[in-house]
Design a protein around this nucleic acid. Sequence first.
RNA 1: CAGUGUUGUCAUC
Length: 309
Amino acid sequence: VYCFSPVINRLCEEGRVNEAFGLFEDMMTKHGVWPNVVVCTSLIHGLCRTGRWREARNFLGSMIRWGISPDVFTFTIVLAALCKEGRVREALDVLEQMSNWGIKPHVITYTSLIYGFCRLGEFGKAIALLDKMKSDAVPPDVITFNVLLDALCKVGRVKEALAMYRLMMQRSTRPDTFTYNILIYGLCHSGQWEEAMRLLDEMLHLKIFPDTITLSGILDAFSEQGMMEKARKLFEEMTRRGPKPDIISYNTLIKGYCLLGEMDKAEEVFEEMASKGDLPDIISYNTLAIGYIKADRIYVAFKLVEDAT
RNA sequence: CAGUGUUGUCAUC
């Protein structure tokens, strides 16, 4: 099983679930190896990820019939997949099923549910769960907080996110790069630049360093607000000192120029990526093409679409 | 280190 398991898991991760099941069958019939909860859970994960919920349910039933008991991983995986789809109602059913098996949810289980509630904009329920964690002696961790911070920022409740961040610090939960990426993104996009820079200092102080995502978030805020001189400056700084811009950073810069109708500059960046290692992707083409359409240069857009294919 | 949760770009919604 220990040999088959990683391979089956890899196939599931790549979405090659049918092949994974093929190997699973071979494992049992040709090699006489009896499955365990880990292999079965990997397969269930694969099914959930590809939206094959019915089969996931059935397979869960099968494994139980084979005398293989699902564990906290099994339930959490199904629950998290449902939450990601916004199907929190069904996720709660899984939670109940889980407790029928006498399995206690752990931090990842709760965090997934909180993510689900946030996705639906049900912040009250998300916070209630956070409180329940504390009373259940399942302490929220940095990811739990990151989920809440991100959801609050994304609906424009940045002030509450900052309050939550302070709460998290009070509980001595150490923030990570994600935490700051989320908050700085939220602050910059709501025009609170000074506060954003304050947080940037704070993260450096804790020896948590900005990465490409941090700076691309800022770059995007500059781009959306038409502050292209600053965007360009930041981009050049990234090129010189790092963290290095990646394809998304390029696309972000292109977007900024397109929004201002500065198509020459946008084109320049586009050309530049081709000469560096980052080849334009479908999003680069899309962004530029739509920019041209908005600038009433539809012919150029057609040409681009042609190039892209 | 055999399996689970969070962050940046276009369009769609």
